[in-house]
């Protein structure tokens, strides 16, 4: 990402910064120094507080929707429904165990929550699975 120094007008990349390598905060430091003039300016993308403020005031733009409606189940948001496209055959045993609950290609699922474990609904079955399994299921949002 290119940063523009408000003091001297120098444009620099993250890699050009000299201060982070010698700083105890390293990459977590939310202050950046212009490698040209040494001016210290706050990096609002790295600051957790700034990020929180932006989220609270709604100034942060949500990440744009991926154009494809296909994604792993693990990327669904709670409340979203989707149709299952594929259950990864990484382990046949897992595929078989999920299928007896109705988690098979073509089935419509609704994600209820992601944490502390994924909970989804298939028909009238409420099923809890962990992240690794949710990640191995491919769903299509265009129901």
């Amino acid at each position: 990402m290119v940063t523009h120094c408000p003091l001297c007008g120098y444009d620099f990349n993250d890699g050009d910064m000299a201060c982070h390598t010698s700083c105890v905060f390293h990459n977590h430091c939310s202050i950046v120094c212009c490698p040209n003039c040494g001016y210290q300016l706050p990096d609002e993308n790295r600051s957790h507080l700034a990020d929180l403020f932006k989220r609270l005031t709604g100034r942060k733009e949500e990440q744009p929707e991926p154009r494809s409606q296909l994604r792993p189940l693990s990327a669904l948001l709670p409340g979203q429904s989707a149709r299952i496209v594929k259950v990864s055959a990484a382990t046949a045993h897992r595929q078989e165990r999920l299928s007896v609950f109705g988690v098979i290609p073509g089935a419509k699922i609704t994600l209820q929550q992601r944490k502390p474990a994924y909970v989804l609904r298939v028909g009238f079955t409420e099923l809890s699975i962990e992240y690794e399994i949710a990640d191995s299921i491919l769903v299509d949002l265009a129901v």
Partner: peptide, 9 residues
């Protein structure tokens, strides 16, 4: 084993 658990109503 995988954590796959049915939640009864």
């Amino acid at each position: 084993s995988d954590f796959i658990l049915e939640l009864p109503p």
